[in-house]
Design a binder for these strands. Structure first.
Lengths: 225, 225
DNA sequence: TCTTGATGTCAACGGCGTTTACATATCATG
DNA sequence: CATGATATGTAAACGCCGTTGACATCAAGA
């Protein structure tokens, strides 16, 4: 019948075709932007639909429910994070392999922390315990980027092999904890200026016994970078 | 007028008095339990009201809005966490002061991680960026417990004074990151068993140059405890 | 051409936080 | 004790949300 639209909505009126064309991709893009600017709570099916001038129910032709959409947005955020880490690694200049591997490792952490600073909402979304749909590749993942960085450290001798096991856990925990605590303003306990990210990166390297070269005085820790 | 109650609710029917008596405290207790068992999303004004057999609007006589209630629940969760840390510290047995200060420091971290394991929902709530009302004391806070532990390390000589500045940030970041990542099942990347918490505590001590005694071979890190 | 499946709309449901007007109890003050 | 102010609870509504089921439109193959 001739669809009179007394619903107060305005769907499909400014669209020439009845069908959208690439709604699934548009939904993901819009939901990603909402998550970026307002956090996961801002990702509302009705708001996404409103922005794309589509009925809320249309979303259900592409995602079984809100969690599925949010899960794919989380996958996108993890990709954003991994790419930022790799970008930072790419900026490291050439030197001797060992120093370079250390700088690349620190760059990974710096990329993580910069991303957390610039896009706190996306970082939170990235670590929502929701799995993305199988259609999302998840490569490169932040975890694998970190693992590669650690492997490189071992290859150049900068990281003792005995420290390699569980190193992802240590490094990732410290970086992630710092990032989320800072994002949650947890360091604003006594109105001091927030702690320096480089201090955290330095502490991580020290806890892994990463050494720039064979130290003359054993055990004297050097400030890296 | 004679209040016929056609609303489908059942308020005040099983209660003898029109007034509750100590609704504010009851609201906090019930909201805390909901947060414990189902996370912050489970803390619903209507559900809390339902459980206490009170109308939803009654809550607004005691809290301006949902965030205020949740903020106080967050404050309670932070207290729970701090108490758990202190409990663990209390279990440390007597030895020489230096070893004892180290064990007490590690106990603080262990208390944090055990709490995160046992009450993951409360841990998440504890770090919601919502301030509790001024009526909540917030003592002892997890932050202050940690700071006291670090001061004790310095006092016994187990922590070099040069490492004292920013030590809260390093320790807290690592512990908190590990706890939240484990709670979010982020370590389930490749079906391996989750990493050992003691490894993380050990790494923290190493990154702070905490030393059980003056090492004969400088720089050789000893496994603590 | 006709049918079938994919994609979008509409209207409704119940749940939520919140507000407004009103009901009832407690308490201070005469 | 009486009375009026104040604190505390209720009922009903509002607009938001996710989700569903019936229906409309379109594209593509038999």
């Amino acid at each position: 019948m001739n669809a009179v639209n007394i619903s107060g909505y305005n769907h499909a009126m400014s669209r020439s075709t009845y069908h959208h064309g690439d709604l699934r991709r548009a939904l993901l893009t819009e939901a990603h932007e909402l998550a970026r600017s307002g956090g996961s709570d801002a990702v509302t099916l009705r708001e996404v639909a409103r922005r794309l001038e589509v009925s809320p129910a249309a979303i259900y032709r592409h995602f079984p429910d809100r969690d599925a959409l949010l899960g794919d947005v989380a996958g996108m955020a993890r990709l954003d994070l991994a790419r930022r880490m790799l970008d930072e690694v790419g900026l490291v200049e050439e030197t001797d392999p060992r120093t370079r591997s250390i700088r690349r490792f620190l760059a990974i952490g710096r990329g993580y922390l910069d991303f957390a600073q610039d896009e706190p909402n996306l970082l939170a979304v990235a670590f929502l315990p929701i799995a993305p749909s199988r259609s999302m590749s998840e490569d490169p993942s932040p975890w694998h980027v970190l693992a590669a960085g650690l492997d490189e450290l071992v290859a150049t001798g900068a990281l003792p092999v005995e420290r390699r096991a569980g190193a992802e856990t240590i490094a990732w925990s410290a970086v992630h904890g710092f990032a989320t605590l800072r994002a949650g303003r947890a360091f604003d306990v006594s109105g001091e200026p927030g702690p320096d990210p480089e201090t955290v990166l330095d502490a991580i390297a020290r806890s892994l016994d990463v050494r720039p070269s064979m130290p003359k005085v054993r055990g004297k820790h050097h400030r890296l970078r």
